[in-house]
């Protein structure tokens, strides 16, 4: 088993948070995992992305060249990463912020109005958790429960008040997948 994931969106959409949380969840399930962020030259309000590799074998380079899964939280991210996906890859799209159709015909595509759903939950910032919840349920790479269990650790004491809304968002995202 080996999954190479790219999570991307605007700075401020919780891209690094979603990636760190997924990495923590994979670690809790005793899988090998690496997390590698885009760094340095990125700006606030610009695009951010992170690479994860989850495997049951030792992981080489943590840098993802062609991903087997992609969580695209805005359109510039889709423009950049759609063409870099592996065939039959799983593409999760935040349809609230993406206007166009996907060009590739060889991908499994799930469109979710993540930003609108997050707004209904009272916090626009949890769109990342809705996308992640859907991804976890669909891919079954690790369980949604492991990720929910990891939430307090990754959120930390300071953001404890955001625990509930993040949990809810993960479950709502998961609930979209039958």
């Amino acid at each position: 088993m080996r999954e190479e994931i790219v999570i991307a969106g605007f700075g401020g959409q919780g891209i690094m948070f979603a990636g760190t949380l997924l990495a923590q969840g994979a670690m809790e399930e005793d899988l090998q995992v690496t997390f590698f962020p885009s760094y340095g030259a990125e700006m606030r309000g610009g695009t951010a992305n992170c690479n994860l590799i989850i495997s049951d074998e030792e992981i080489g380079s943590p840098v993802v060249i062609n991903s087997s899964a992609a969580l695209m939280l805005n359109q510039p991210s889709l423009d950049k990463f759609e063409k870099r996906m592996k065939g039959k890859g799983l593409l999760i799209i935040n349809s609230s912020l993406v206007d166009r159709e996907v060009e590739r015909k060889d991908l499994e595509i799930i469109k979710i109005p993540a930003t609108e759903m997050a707004e209904r939950l009272g916090n626009v910032k949890v769109a990342n958790m809705i996308a992640l919840g859907a991804y976890l349920k669909k891919s079954r790479i690790i369980s949604l429960e492991s990720v929910i269990k990891s939430l307090p650790k990754v959120l930390g004491e300071r953001k404890r008040d955001l625990l509930e809304v993040n949990q809810k968002a993960l479950r709502e995202g998961g609930g979209l997948i039958k």
Binding site: A23, V33, F35, P37, P62, V63
Partner: peptide
């Protein structure tokens, strides 16, 4: 190097 510095793993 930058990869080892920036990456996270258990």
């Amino acid at each position: 190097d930058g990869v080892l510095g920036q990456m996270m793993e258990p």
